[in-house]
Design a protein around this nucleic acid. Structure first.
Length: 210
DNA sequence: ACATTAAGTGATT
DNA sequence: AATCACTTAATGT
């Protein structure tokens, strides 16, 4: 775990801090599709992503989902931060998008480090800032972009976090991620294919125009 | 061969 | 953009 830490976080944290993380953190490998955080759940430790990607979803009262953004390596979950500091419940659901490696750090420690290590404080604030930007971007996407733009952005994001131009999903799954109906997705995908931006196959989509 | 699931399409609101 | 109704195609048993 120490090696992983140095490799991914060594450039921003001092050795001392790396050492501390190594002492109190627990290393975990999580398979794809695992629910990390559920809505309404209290959070007792904060994840540091080493590799892989996590999908952050919002859910309405009817159980309909909506994608907010993806988290990639070097990031942490801003929701966790605000939950921990405010000692409140999670407002979101986090699901692993790919097989993921992460390090769990107890909340108490993470608070302690805030005043102890400048680099940690920077890291936390930076993550907060990044998430905030992404959130705003997500709002823009939902409020101002039409479905076809949203869909294409979704496909690109998904391709990015998976490090592959071939995405393995059904139209139905996309529809629920974007909170629309399958028929709409099918139609939009069709037009994207005609425009030569993607290639459609059963159960997978290839992005051509990246 | 049959059932099931994914995807495509026209028509309507 | 959503929903319905129906078709077609791929896949599993």
């Amino acid at each position: 775990m120490l090696e992983e830490l140095k490799q991914h976080y060594g450039y921003m944290f001092e050795d001392e801090l790396i050492q501390e993380i190594n002492n109190v953190g627990t290393y975990k490998e999580i398979p794809e599709g695992f629910k990390l955080i559920e809505i309404g759940q209290y959070i007792k430790s904060m994840p540091l992503l080493v590799s892989g990607a996590i999908k952050i979803l919002r859910e309405d009262k009817d159980g309909d989902e909506l994608i907010l953004y993806f988290i990639e390596q070097g990031d942490t979950c801003a929701m966790t931060l605000s939950c921990c500091l405010g000692n409140s419940k999670s407002e979101i659901r986090a699901v692993t998008e790919t097989d993921t490696k992460l390090i769990m750090v107890p909340v108490a420690k993470m608070e302690e480090w805030l005043s102890k290590y400048k680099t940690w404080q920077q890291f936390v604030l930076q993550s907060y800032h990044n998430r905030m930007s992404e959130l705003l971007e997500a709002i823009d996407t939902i409020a101002f972009l039409k479905m076809d733009k949203r869909l294409f952005k979704y496909l690109k994001d998904k391709a990015m976090v998976n490090h592959s131009d071939v995405i393995y999903v059904t139209h139905q799954q996309i529809a629920s991620d974007l909170h629309t109906s399958r028929v709409v997705i099918s139609r939009l995908l069709k037009t994207l294919e005609i425009d030569g931006k993607i290639e459609l196959n059963r159960n997978n989509i290839k992005i051509l125009d990246l």
